[in-house]
């Protein structure tokens, strides 16, 4: 396997979608090719860093508006029952 082949199949490899036979080819390639090993490792880290990124705090004024709008909608979807208990919103 050449570096170019590895690069083309890199996504399937890091996503675990590669045929097991080809995975072995990757391992063999890495044994003799440190740059490719480092590229794959840093691609994995790149994906992980974005996936695991801390959720940003949403702007406070938006948070207030969002929760107000949801509460209003909840009241429409779950109207208080006649003579029953009030909605828990």
């Amino acid at each position: 396997m050449k570096c170019e082949d590895l690069l083309r199949m890199l996504n399937d490899y890091v996503d675990g979608d590669l045929d097991p036979g080809l995975c072995e080819e990757f391992e063999k390639h890495f044994a003799g090719c440190n740059p490719c090993r480092v590229v794959v490792d840093t691609v994995r880290k790149t994906i992980a860093i974005y996936k695991g990124g801390k959720a940003c705090e949403i702007p406070l004024d938006f948070k207030r508006r969002l929760h107000e709008a949801l509460r209003e909608k909840w009241k429409q979807v779950h109207p208080p029952r006649e003579g029953g208990e009030a909605p828990r919103a």
Partner: peptide, 16 residues
Amino acid sequence: GDYAAFEELVSRHEGR
């Protein structure tokens, strides 16, 4: 029908 539970779900996911 528990709004507090829904609101908790919103708070957990809104930032992401």
